[in-house]
Amino acid sequence: MSGDSKIGPVGGIARTTPLRSVASESAAAARAAAPPAVGDNLPAARLIRLAGGLANQTPPVDVARVASLRSAIASGNYGVHPAIIASAMIDFHTGGGE
């Protein structure tokens, strides 16, 4: 947009320092202002560690099921049943599929 002569500066804000240094300064200020975690006594600290551990895990995959689906698709034997799919979607969204 810098080449567009119809659009001027928005709100009269002019950046005097590069974005990278502003972001790094604000991140450093946020880290300095945050209170240190005090061991396992804080439920939030435990939840954050648990969430981080779960995020680093790979999702469980049923390799045999994937292989059977691939072979069924490749051979043309995989059938899609729209009525069954629609029913399952409705059950899921109405809470009936639990």
Rank of each mutant, 00 (worst) to 15 (best):
A55G: 06
S68M: 09
I48A: 14
T58D: 09
I7H: 08
V80H: 15
P60S: 10
L42F: 02
H93E: 14
P43T: 02
V66H: 03
Y78F: 15
V61I: 15
V63K: 12
A74R: 15
A32K: 14
L42Y: 04
D4G: 01
P43K: 04
A74T: 14
T94Y: 03
S71V: 05
H81C: 10
S68P: 00
G3D: 09
P36M: 04
D4R: 03
S24R: 10
A88L: 11
L47K: 13
G53L: 08
R46G: 04
S71E: 14
V61R: 13
A72L: 11
A30D: 04
S5V: 02
V63F: 02
L50V: 02
G79Q: 12
V66R: 07
R65K: 11
T58R: 10
G97Q: 11
A67R: 08
R49L: 05
T58V: 04
K6S: 08
I84V: 15
Q57P: 02
V66L: 11
L69V: 09
G97L: 12
V61W: 04
A74Y: 08
V38S: 03
I85W: 03
G76T: 08
I48Y: 09
S24D: 09
N56K: 12
S75G: 13
G39I: 01
N41A: 06
L19W: 11
P43S: 05
A37S: 07
R70I: 02
V10S: 05
M89L: 14
A86H: 14
L19E: 15
P43Y: 03
I48K: 13
G53S: 11
F92K: 15
V61K: 14
S68I: 03
A83M: 14
S5H: 09
R49K: 11
V63A: 12
N56T: 09
L50K: 11
R20A: 12
I48R: 12
V63Q: 11
I13N: 04
T17D: 10
D4A: 06
P60Q: 08
N56S: 11
F92D: 09
A72C: 10
G12H: 03
N41Q: 08
A34R: 09
A27W: 03
I84A: 15
G11K: 01
V63T: 15
G76E: 12
S2P: 00
N77P: 00
S87M: 10
D91F: 07
L47A: 10
T16A: 09
L19A: 14
A74C: 12
T17G: 00
S2R: 10
G39V: 02
T58A: 14
A51I: 04
P35A: 07
L47T: 05
E25C: 02
I85S: 10
F92E: 14
K6T: 01
A27Q: 09
V10A: 15
D62Q: 10
S87G: 14
G95N: 07
A28S: 15
S87A: 13
Q57T: 08
R65G: 01
F92C: 12
R65A: 06
A23I: 03
P35S: 06
T16W: 01
T58Y: 05
M89F: 11
V61Q: 13
A30N: 07
H81P: 00
G8S: 08
P43F: 01
V80W: 13
